[in-house]
Design a protein around this nucleic acid. Structure first.
Lengths: 156, 156
DNA sequence: TATTACCCGACTGATCGTCTAGGATTTCCC
DNA sequence: GGGAAATCCTAGACGATCAGTCGGGTAATA
C-alpha cells in the first residue's frame, strides 16, 4: 500500500468541499455522513489540511469548512503531502537540494548509490502524477455522475 | 514511505548478483557482508525472489545464488513486486481486468469513484518508473563507480 | 563425515495506522 | 444571556506490519 486511508479520506473530503457550491461553510459532520466515514477521525485529517492552508474553518454554530483556494489551483501533491507527509519512496532517501544521488548509509566517499537512482525515478513518477491532477479535475469527474450540492434552491 | 527496506535490501541483493561476473553461485553471506545487511533477514527476502524465478539457488558447499535471467531482462517492477507484493496505491484499490474506475466501498450503482481516478494515475507513474528500469541499468550505474567482482583473476 | 550453505517457521520489540473518548472553545440564534 | 452547533485539542486503545533474531532442519561438496 503506497498510501494510507489518510490520503483517501482527505482527498474525498476535499472533493466534497469542491463540490459544494453554496458558498457557506460545510460542517464536517455532513461530509462524514455523505462519505460514510468516521467523524472523529476526519477531524484529525482536516486539521492537517487546515495547517497547510488548503481549507479554512469557521467555528461555532453554522460553521464548517471551506476551500482555502480555487479548486483549479490545488494540486493533489499538496493535498497528499499535507496528509501523509513528504513523499519519499524509501527510508534512506533524503531529498537533497542539488538532486544528488547519495544514500544515507554510505559514506560520502563511497560514491553514488544505485538504488537511489531507482527511487528517484519512482518519486518522480508519483509526484508528477499527483502534481498533474488538480482538485477541479476530480470534482469535475465526481460531479459528472453524481449531483453536487447546489447553490441555493437546487433542483432535486 | 512508499516502500519498506524489503525493497531496498532486495534490490541491493539483485544488484550484487548482477555485478558478479564469476559465473559461480554467490553465497548470501558474502552479499550480506558486502552490503552490511543482516544475513538472517536477507534469507527471507531472497526466498521471495527465488519464488518469483528471479534468482536460482544451488545448495551445499560452494553453493549460493545466481540470477535467474539476464540482467537486461529483469525489470525493477518484477523485483519490487516480488518483495513487497502487488503495487496498489490504496487499500480499496483493486486492479480490475478492464481497468474500470470502481471503488470497493461504493455499490456498483454508485458510479465511478473520483479518488480512484487519482490512484490509477499514481499507480501508473510508479509502475512505469519501475518497469522502465532494468537490473542492468542499476548494475551499470553501480559498476561505473565501484569495481565489480571480476571473472577469475580480476585486477586489483 | 565435516563443512558449507540453503531452507523454514516461530517469535519479539517497535512503530504506525485507524479510530474512539472526552472535554474545551467559539459562534449563532432565540 | 443561554443553549445548541460546530470547531478544536489531547490522550490514548488496539491491531497490523516491519525489521530482525533464533533454532533447527536439508542438501551438496570436499
Amino acid at each position: 500500500m503506497l498510501f494510507s486511508t489518510k490520503a483517501e479520506y482527505g482527498v474525498r473530503l476535499m472533493i466534497e468541499l469542491g463540490r459544494d457550491q453554496r458558498g457557506e461553510p460545510l460542517p464536517l459532520s455532513s461530509i462524514a455522513e455523505a462519505e460514510n466515514l468516521p467523524l472523529s477521525y476526519m477531524e484529525h485529517l482536516v486539521a492537517r489540511l487546515k495547517q497547510a492552508g488548503l481549507v479554512d474553518s469557521t467555528r461555532g454554530a453554522r460553521g464548517g469548512y471551506t476551500l482555502g483556494r480555487e479548486p483549479s489551483g490545488i494540486t493533489m501533491l499538496e493535498v497528499v503531502e499535507a496528509l501523509e507527509g513528504p513523499i519519499v519512496p524509501m527510508e534512506c532517501f533524503e531529498t537533497e537540494p542539488k538532486g544528488r544521488v547519495q544514500c544515507s548509509h554510505l559514506a560520502p566517499t563511497d560514491g553514488p548509490c544505485a538504488t537511489k537512482l531507482l527511487w528517484t525515478r519512482v518519486q518522480g513518477g508519483v509526484t508528477e502524477a499527483l502534481r498533474e491532477t488538480t482538485l477541479s479535475d476530480l470534482v469535475e469527474f465526481a460531479s459528472s455522475n453524481r449531483p453536487a450540492r447546489q447553490p441555493v434552491g437546487g433542483a432535486a
